[in-house]
Write a protein that binds this DNA or RNA. Sequence first.
RNA 1: GGAGGGAUGGCCGAGUCUGGCUUAAGGCGGCGGUCUUGAAAACCGUUGACCGUUUUACGCGGUCCGAAGGUUCGAAUCCUUCUCCCUCCGCCA
Length: 434
Amino acid sequence: MSSMHDLSKLRKDPDRTRAEFSARKVTFDLDDLLDRDEIRRTLIQQVDTLKARRNEAGKKIGEMKKSGEDADGIIADMGKLGLKIEGIDAELKDLHAGIQADLLGLPNLPHKSVPVGRDETENIVARTWGEPRDFDFKVLDHVDLGEALRIIDPGRAAKVSGARFPAQFGAGAVLERALAAFMLDLARDEGDYLEVLTPFLVLPESMEGSGQLPKFAEEAFFIEKDSLYLIPTSEVPLVNLHRGEILGEGDLPIRYCAYTPCFRREAGSYGKDTRGIIRVHQFTKCELVWYTTPETSYQALETLVTDAERVLQRLELPYQVVSLCTGDLGFAAAKTYDVEVWLPSQQRYREISSCSNCEDFQARRAEIRYRPHEGKKARFVHTLNGSGLAIGRTIVALLENYQEANGTVTIPDALRPYMDGLEKIDPLKRPGAQ
RNA sequence: GGAGGGAUGGCCGAGUCUGGCUUAAGGCGGCGGUCUUGAAAACCGUUGACCGUUUUACGCGGUCCGAAGGUUCGAAUCCUUCUCCCUCCGCCA
């Protein structure tokens, strides 16, 4: 059984381990953990010795029985030995389960290149692209625009499903599928990603493998009757596709893209982004996932961000790329770049993609390894994921950045082939829209 | 949902009735070698994962036959529960 973290590494340099976890704002008793590991290893030595003796005796008993000798004495001895082994094994099992449970709750450690900081205010802007447009009229936000055009209808969505759900009509709905096709084509043609249709409901072990469980159970929708989770991101199925496998080095890198719905409870975000479709329980996303060797994963991360940026460049939407600081890093990530798109109504950049290198963190949990060409011992792969992009937020950005003084919205050139050549969105006539 | 069959190493597959001779046969694939101008074929050899050995080792020991329990001195093999897959029937986009 492999550990979530490499315990031998943690124990080799406890001071450094402590420092790295505290940079991530995690406090836990490392000494206690290492103590229990120490006891565990001592017990393993003891019980293995006893088992060796048992195996030896087992062979002897077989031979004695075959030759008709009386083996009752040795059998009685082995009975006692068996009980002892059973006892130590039980103790070991508890110890191991406890250690694993603790390890499962610990986040990944940050890469050396990650800026040290407490929270999102200390993230570093890596680069910006494009110029926010100058408007000579008062800009509307995506909700006012969408409602005036009658393509977005939060009220009716709430009637059907409660707060924080989307309902889009006409061009508002077409935009969704146009963007999905546009992003998937781009990923395939210019990023060499293989498109995957994944399950949208997953087993608990899949959620654990990619790091959503056990810590973030509150964030996910769970179907109790069948013990299945609704995916909060397609990263979950894409990473678990190869759970428990040993891949060939020749298979790497594996690049997958998938367009899926994502479901999030948004527990604890009451009062945040309550307007419109920026933060909803259900949204869709084109997700990009890589499996790489450890040697190439940071180069892959740069490529992955570039793949996400390309979508915004083609749509001609201004954005910036920020490197998250240690305090803002997600649970599974060793390093993350967020891509943030300009929203005129808020006069600031908002997250539209998050690209992370999880190194071997998910691979350890999901036991995904590969066999290197040189030296044949299997090693853990590195996994990376990034949105390319979140589609709801792309729609928000398009509406706001491409709005005109008369309330219509221009469709960017790159998207027109996916919308039957539509050049601009005019107000939609539909029943009940007055 | 009903009835039946199955799950063994990277893959195929024997072993399960009759527990110890399994250190899981055999084949395929992979790797190394012989032969060859080179390759193929043939032949020879080799071939997993994990844990421990707080000196990372070609050594030694342990664990692993879908999962979890149980019986036993001893379980791939016997018992119980569960999961998944296959076939047929029913239902269904």
